[in-house]
Design a binder for these strands. Structure first.
Length: 286
DNA sequence: CACTCAACCTGCCGGC
DNA sequence: TGCCGGCAGGTTGAGT
């Protein structure tokens, strides 16, 4: 469950259901789930057993549980990853990749991932800002109090690319993926191919307001799910998909002007926009 | 340094 | 039925 609102929904679930519970056992069922842990699955497990998560934190789409050892269990859900808190007796299912059991013998934590683009890793916490090692390249997300709006405006205008590419660049701003990029651009009335260097500061600020609005509303709705792949730690779906104005709405009338929403192929993916509210620029940057 | 794009996976859906 | 192409919420690393 990929973008910031879905990851935040999972973070809240872990905070409630996993923090302060001591890990008793770890089973890695698929090595790819742990591939970013260079020392291998055995080392991964040994750094977790006996340890207790003290809190649950997030930056952009990364999520981590700082442990009482000074390490952190870092998770990225990729395209299809789920962190589920389940009954011990729940059937494993074909995509179960990692299991964590706790000493209290209650529910267990499962990492389930159909496409295996996601993964878990144990990393040392970097001193200072509560960030694990290896996440320094991820920019603060727009809901982070440390996010610097004017620095973002300047950085975007320094780029030579399309505005949607910039929004999806996690080193510029984190947490925004394909759904919320299209939603924010629709709200800000900006076409996805608008060249960043030609955006006025007021355009970028308006876009930032739109990003924060849409992320905030989606978190309040428990995230977006089109199917059972995107669920919270209890396996429940969010309902923000009912509030989408652009993403996945090809042919549907724009809520503002009634023009049919258009879908463009873009970067081996899709970009949805309203042809009237978001006019294509003269010199598009794809 | 900035930018672009293929590659990494599985599963589902529609067309033929 | 079955096979094939297209598509899906993301990141990274090699190449320009």
């Amino acid at each position: 469950m990929p973008e910031l609102p879905e990851v935040e929904t999972v973070r809240r679930g872990l905070e409630r259901l996993v923090v302060e519970r001591t890990i008793a056992a770890v089973e890695v069922h698929h090595p790819r789930a742990v591939r970013r842990h260079e020392q291998g699955a055995g080392d991964f497990a040994s750094l977790l057993v006996g340890r207790t998560p003290v809190t649950a934190l997030r930056r952009g789409k990364y999520l981590w549980l700082p442990l009482d050892s000074g390490d952190a269990l870092v998770a990225h859900l990729g395209m299809s990853g789920q962190l589920l808190v389940t009954d011990l007796a729940a059937p494993p299912g074909p995509h179960l990749r990692v299991r964590l059991a706790f000493t209290d013998g209650g529910t267990e934590l499962r990492f389930v991932d159909q496409r295996t683009f996601g993964g878990l890793v144990v990393r040392r916490m970097a001193d200072g800002r509560g960030l694990p090692h290896g996440l320094a390249h991820i920019a603060p997300d727009p809901l982070d109090p440390g996010f610097d709006d004017e620095q973002f405006v300047a950085a975007v205008r320094r780029r030579r690319t399309g505005v949607k590419r910039a929004l999806l660049d996690q080193t510029l701003v984190s947490g925004v993926g394909n759904i919320y990029a299209d939603e924010a651009l629709w709200r800000a009335r900006l076409h996805w191919a608008r060249p960043t260097e030609a955006l006025r500061p007021v355009d970028v600020r308006r876009l930032l307001v739109a990003v924060r609005e849409v992320l905030g509303e989606a978190i309040a709705a428990g995230g977006t799910s089109f199917d059972a792949l995107y669920v919270n730690v209890n396996g429940e779906s969010g309902w923000f998909d009912r509030s989408l104005d652009a993403y996945g709405q090809e042919g549907r009338p724009c809520r503002r002007c009634g023009s049919p929403i258009r879908r463009d192929k873009w970067m081996n993916r899709s970009a949805y926009s309203c042809p009237r509210c978001q006019p294509r620029p003269r010199a598009p940057r794809l």
